[in-house]
Design a protein around this nucleic acid. Structure first.
Length: 600
DNA sequence: AAACTGCTCAACCGCGTTGCG
DNA sequence: TCGCAACGCGGTTGAGCAGTT
C-alpha cells in the first residue's frame, strides 16, 4: 500500500472530532492534555515518518496516541520536527527579533520565517519576556529616540483595522519598509517609500549597544539612484564599511512567501565588497539587516491595504505608489553582448501572488495566454542590478529590483533594459526602461547539471546537509511534470558570502506518479559547493500562485576546500516513490576565502 | 529549609482562514 | 454559495525551575 493509499484510507475514515480547541468532545473524554512524554513523542514521530505531516486528527485513529490533532500538530511543529534549533537565542537572533518586531509587530509566525529552526512560539515567548523585562526596568522596547513605539492597543488596532494608522511618528519611520513576509505578501498594502535612516541606540537589556539602523529604500529612490548608481553603491558601502566594520549582512526572505530567492544571514562577507550592493538591491521582498545598518525593501502589491506592525507608521498618501520587488533575473538566450536577450523577471503581479517568471514559464508550457507573463528584454551584465520601475498596472505601479545572475558573453557590454509587461487587460506590452546600477562582475563557471525530475502536487521537501545542518521548511510542488523526462528548473538559491549569485539546482531522477514503489518519503540531494554561512533557499517553482514555501537554509559545515562538493540532501515527501530524488545544484568553482564566522 | 517571586516555555484555547464537497 | 473540517496563528495559561528573601 502506498503512502498515498494510506493517507486516502485515513482520510476516508470518518472524522469523529474536531481539534481539541473546538472539540465537541464527542468521544474525546480520553484525550490527554498536558506535557508530552517521550513515548508519545516517539509515536508521533513514527506517525509522521510514515504518513507525513498533516492529517493530524488522523494520528489518534492510527496510533495509540490519545492526543487531539491540534496538540499533535503543535508538538510536531514546536518540538519534534527536524532541524529545530534548541537553546537560547543568539545575540544575532535577538537583534533580529527586535528588528523584525519593530517592522512586523506580533506576527510571530512571519518572524519565525526569518529565523531558521526557531518557532513562532519561541519568538513569542522571548518577546513577551523581553517586554515584561523592559517594562519593569522602564526601558523602551525599541530605541527611545525612535519615538514610534506604540502600545499594545495600537498593535491590536493596527491588526483589526488595516487602515488605522497613527501619524504621530517620525517621517523616517513612516518611510521605513516592511520586510517581505508571507502575510504581507498576501495582504495587499500600500505605502510610500523613501530612503530613510534614523539612529536607534539600543541600550536595553538585550545587549544592544548604540547602533544606527538606517532604512534605505532603493526602490523609492530608484530614479535618483539609478541615475547615479555608483553614488548609491558607494553610500551603501560606506555606511557599512566605514562606520561599522563588523557589519553582518542579513538578507531575508520569509519562508512562507512565494518562491523567490531567499537569503539568510551572511557572515564573513566583506562589507566593502561590491558584491553586497547587488544583494542589497536585488532581493525582492527582502531587507538587508546589517548589524548597524538596516536596509529594507518594502514589497507591496495589489490594492492598498496595509497591516501595520506595532510601531510602524505608513504614509497613506494617496499618491504613494505600490512597489513590487523582483527577484534575481535569469538571463536566457544570450546571443551577443549587444544583442537582445530574453530575461525572465520574477515580478510579482498584483493579480498573482507568485512570481511572473515561473508562472510565465508554466503558462507558456501550457500554451496559455501570456496574461501574467512579465519579460524583460535587455542586454545586461552579470550582477548588474536593475531597478525596474513604473510598471503601472491598473493604478498600481510596480517597482522592482533585480539582479542578473547569469554571465553574459561580454561582461563589458552595456545595455538598456526594457521590461515588457503583459497584463491581462492589455494587448500590448508595457515597455519600461531600467537602470543598470553596477558594473559587471564575471560570474564563476557553473557546473552543469542534468535533471529529470518528477514532482507532484503536494510534494514536500526539506533540506538538510548531513542530516542536521540545513534548516528549511518544506517546499511544496503543486504540479505534475508531465513526463519523467521533463525538467523542472527547481532553483535552490544559494547566496554565499563571497557571491551574490544564487546557486541553481534542479531536481533529478524523477519517477512518474503512480509508481507502485510509492512510499511516504523520499530524499533528494543537492550537490554543490558550499561553505559555512552559505544560505540556501529552496525557491522552486510556483505554479499556482503560492504553493511554494521555503525558508532560508543555512549551511554551517565548511567543505574542506572551496571547490569541493558536498551532498545536500532534502527529505522529499512524495506519494509515489521511495527512492531518493537527486537534485544536483550548479556549483561554483570559485575559491574565495573561507568565511570567518558561523551564523548558525 | 521554606516561602516567595520571577522567569521560561510548553501547551492550550479561541478565532480566522482555507480548502473542499 | 454554503457548511464543514482542517489548519494556522496569536493570545493566554500554568507548571516547573531558579534565584532571592
Amino acid at each position: 500500500m502506498t503512502s498515498k493509499d494510506q493517507m486516502e484510507q485515513i482520510n476516508s475514515q470518518p472524522s469523529e472530532e474536531d481539534s481539541c480547541g473546538e472539540s465537541t468532545n464527542k468521544g474525546n473524554e480520553d484525550l490527554k492534555k498536558g506535557p508530552w512524554t517521550s513515548a508519545e513523542d516517539e509515536i508521533l514521530v513514527n506517525y509522521v515518518d510514515r504518513f507525513g505531516e498533516g492529517n493530524w486528527n488522523a494520528v489518534q485513529k492510527h496510533t495509540k496516541l490519545r492526543r487531539c490533532g491540534k496538540s499533535c500538530r503543535l508538538r510536531w511543529i514546536n518540538h519534534l520536527r527536524p532541524n529545530l534549533k534548541k537553546g537560547a537565542f543568539t545575540e544575532d537572533e535577538e537583534q533580529l527579533i527586535i528588528a523584525l518586531h519593530s517592522k512586523m509587530g506580533n506576527r510571530w509566525a512571519q518572524m519565525a520565517a526569518f529565523l531558521p529552526g526557531r518557532t513562532d512560539n519561541e519568538i513569542k515567548n522571548y518577546w513577551n519576556t523581553r517586554k515584561k523585562r523592559c517594562q519593569r526596568a522602564g526601558l523602551p522596547l525599541y530605541p527611545p529616540n525612535a519615538c514610534h513605539n506604540v502600545s499594545e492597543e495600537n498593535v491590536q488596532c493596527s491588526r483589526l483595522s488595516k487602515y488605522s494608522y497613527s501619524y504621530d511618528q517620525p517621517l523616517e519611520l513612516l518611510q521605513g519598509s516592511f520586510p517581505d513576509s508571507p502575510d504581507i505578501i498576501s495582504d495587499n498594502f500600500q505605502t510610500s517609500y523613501g530612503a530613510s535612516s534614523y539612529a536607534m541606540p539600543f541600550a536595553d537589556a538585550a545587549g544592544f549597544g548604540s547602533q544606527n539602523y538606517s532604512f534605505a529604500n532603493p526602490t523609492a529612490n530608484c530614479v535618483e539612484q539609478s541615475t547615479d548608481s555608483e553614488k548609491f553603491l558607494l553610500a551603501l558601502h560606506g555606511s557599512v564599511a566605514d562606520v561599522y566594520p563588523t557589519t553582518k549582512q542579513f538578507l531575508f526572505q520569509p519562508s512562507g512567501s512565494t518562491p523567490r530567492n531567499c537569503f539568510g544571514s551572511l557572515h564573513g562577507a566583506d562589507p566593502s565588497s561590491q558584491s553586497l550592493a547587488p544583494l542589497l538591491g536585488a532581493i525582492p521582498g527582502s531587507y538587508a539587516l546589517l548589524n548597524d545598518t538596516f536596509s529594507t525593501y518594502c514589497p507591496t502589491r495589489g490594492t492598498a491595504k496595509l497591516e501595520l506592525p506595532s510601531d510602524q507608521c505608513v504614509e497613506t498618501d494617496a499618491s504613494s505608489r505600490l512597489s513590487c520587488p523582483a527577484t534575481p533575473v535569469s538571463v536566457y538566450n544570450v546571443q551577443s553582448p549587444s544583442a537582445t536577450v530574453s530575461v525572465q523577471s520574477n515580478f510579482v503581479s498584483p493579480w498573482k501572488s507568485g512570481p511572473m517568471l515561473r508562472q510565465a514559464h508554466v503558462l507558456s508550457d501550457a500554451e496559455k495566454e501570456p496574461s501574467e507573463m512579465s519579460s524583460i528584454t535587455s542586454t545586461i551584465k552579470p550582477n548588474d542590478v536593475f531597478e525596474c520601475s513604473g510598471l503601472s498596472i491598473n493604478d498600481m505601479e510596480l517597482y522592482s529590483t533585480a539582479v542578473a545572475d547569469s554571465y553574459m558573453e561580454s561582461p563589458s557590454a552595456l545595455v538598456s533594459l526594457q521590461s515588457k509587461c503583459f497584463p491581462p487587460w492589455k494587448s500590448s506590452p508595457v515597455l519600461q526602461e531600467a537602470h543598470v546600477l553596477s558594473s559587471a562582475e564575471k560570474e564563476p563557471p557553473l557546473k552543469s547539471s542534468s535533471v529529470t525530475p518528477i514532482v507532484k502536487s503536494s510534494d514536500v521537501s526539506e533540506c538538510s546537509i548531513n542530516g542536521t545542518e540545513l534548516y528549511s521548511s518544506p517546499v511544496a510542488f503543486d504540479r505534475y511534470v508531465k513526463s519523467p523526462s521533463a525538467t523542472i528548473p527547481f532553483q535552490s538559491s544559494c547566496v554565499t558570502p563571497w557571491k551574490n549569485v544564487p546557486l541553481r539546482s534542479v531536481l533529478q531522477e524523477g519517477h512518474a506518479p503512480g509508481n507502485s514503489e510509492a512510499k511516504s518519503s523520499e530524499k533528494r540531494s543537492v550537490t554543490s559547493i558550499m561553505k559555512p554561512n552559505n544560505v540556501i533557499c529552496s525557491s522552486g517553482l510556483s505554479i499556482n500562485d503560492r504553493e511554494f514555501n521555503s525558508k532560508p537554509v543555512v549551511a554551517d559545515t565548511y567543505v574542506g576546500s572551496p571547490p569541493a562538493t558536498f551532498s545536500l540532501q532534502s527529505k522529499y515527501l512524495t506519494s509515489w516513490k521511495s527512492d531518493p530524488v537527486l537534485v544536483e545544484a550548479d556549483a561554483f568553482d570559485s575559491a574565495e576565502e573561507e568565511p570567518s564566522k558561523k551564523f548558525c
